[in-house]
Write a protein that binds this DNA or RNA. Sequence first.
DNA 1: TTGAAAGCGCTAACAT
DNA 2: ATGTTAGCGCTTTCAA
Lengths: 340, 340
Amino acid sequence: MPPRKPASVNIKDVARHAGVSLGSASRVVNNVANVGEETRAKVLAAIEALGYRPNHAAQSLRSRSTRTIGCLVTDVANPLYAQLFRALEERFLAEGYLLLLANGLNDPDREIALLNLFRLRGMDGVVIAPGNERHAGVLKAVAALEMPAVVLDRDLASRHDKVQFDHAAGMKAAVAYLAGLGHRRIALVQSQSSNRPMRRRAEGLRAACRSHGLAFDDRWLVQLPSSTSSAYDAVAALLAAPDRPTALLVQGTSILVETLNAVSAAGLSMPRDLSLMSIGDPDFAVHHAPPLTALRVDLHAVADRTAERLLARLGGETAEAVSLRVPSELIERGSCGPAP
Amino acid sequence: MPPRKPASVNIKDVARHAGVSLGSASRVVNNVANVGEETRAKVLAAIEALGYRPNHAAQSLRSRSTRTIGCLVTDVANPLYAQLFRALEERFLAEGYLLLLANGLNDPDREIALLNLFRLRGMDGVVIAPGNERHAGVLKAVAALEMPAVVLDRDLASRHDKVQFDHAAGMKAAVAYLAGLGHRRIALVQSQSSNRPMRRRAEGLRAACRSHGLAFDDRWLVQLPSSTSSAYDAVAALLAAPDRPTALLVQGTSILVETLNAVSAAGLSMPRDLSLMSIGDPDFAVHHAPPLTALRVDLHAVADRTAERLLARLGGETAEAVSLRVPSELIERGSCGPAP
DNA sequence: TTGAAAGCGCTAACAT
DNA sequence: ATGTTAGCGCTTTCAA
């Protein structure tokens, strides 16, 4: 009747070997109180002798807990999500949870399928950052999640806890810093995708400029149509204009590298002729000549907040959903200086 | 007796609602043959009406299969592993497998713990690239893996299938290409870590130079002690020497960016004064000015081979372990030219 | 503190 | 083609 004979030693074997009951063996395995010293020792010895390892599927079935967290991100190949995953792994591994990772790739159908799979697989909790925060199907799939969930950096309407990155405030700090250095023409270079963080930053920039009494020319919002298009050309054009911006905010690793390239090809020296601030803090920023000033979110803080929320819910907390906001930090290095 | 009352609808409910036996319901759920048209329809209707979803833990317990693959990589924050994970996800998702991801971080104890967790959690298969290929404990943990496993780009002694990147052959092709352009002084810039890929490339370079009758000066093997040290300074020093290399092989995204920086600071123009080849093909390589010639492994090919191996084993293949080698490809773009 | 026993929800062997 | 049934390995209630 069994599909295969696994010949695997189970808790019954342990109990028999130890000469105690099944229940006692289980109590020892699960570190439950009210176990006699002698009984515990015998069971432990049997476990050791037999090389017993609990069957996770059986534990899950009985205890209704998989000790697994599902993570749905847009794309791990994006360093931001990769680093975030690492930080999350740190927190959850320490609590005995393993992480399932899936890439939504901005495809709503895929995201829906993945979300449903997480449900089917009985994840104890999920951390999700769906690319399609307005898609009805995605919203429905998110709403259907019956386990604790934390929504990361997305605006989607749901009853779950949220951890947001403070994009607008970050842009405000960046503009304040640059305005303080005398800059009055500030450009933003980013890729053209309509997800929340991008939009928020563009909006944040406009608002911040306004509140500092700076004009904002639409030519200074460079949104690159697709990942195949060249930031190099766009930035070169931007810098060739007579009233070129004196400060550049640049988002995305590839775009940053191409921008740096265009700046040096234009014969401009940082921070003398041009100030540049990276949005996001890639590894090489600190080693660049000059080191690049960067605006970033503290991903460890994000992971901490996220884990704290999810763990609290897992622990049975039933309070109303909260929305946390993790501030951006401005890392002053050498690529920004007084406006020329 | 149950921990909580889940009030969840189970297959028994489905069978009752459909007026058929438990077995028939199960057969429909699992798409097993020998099910009458009418029975199937009734069960499907009941599933729909009740909103039935199979309990994965129970399925796993009974069928002894979790339909989950464990992936142990060194660090997803390394774009190579991130892209590899994505490619693997594509293959395995299509077969109904979900992926557990864990970062070994070059910590042997951590890797051992993770490997054991994969075992405990009953992964159907694993894909592993342990950082510590010589560590006795890691070797033991790998040997203890009773499920199908594929070892990625590591030299460790094990009875499992392996998929290797052909580092030595890649370096040979790179040197042949460069030698053909007249270069006789070729340098390699990489980080100093003793894992297999790094070593293999350095060894491969030496061997390739030898076979092309090129001298190899140890000063041209630039191994940067730690990720905090600056490639910029090292490359600047390299380029300042009177007999400086005429071609640079550069490995690692950060190191590449810093190197590019040092090259342009030295007033050298590519490919006229200096040829540069990237080992690994970051997004921006194609947009750089000039576009960067790159040596890379085809990660989709790696994922295909890996998935093919694992799926075959999962399907019951018992043939002896194989060791596959995925070749490197040389992408000619604009950063290499005739030696000055 | 310990033992006995009842299932968790499901699959697959067996019988019909 | 369908129904019946025996567990998979475990946790937890209940009784002692």
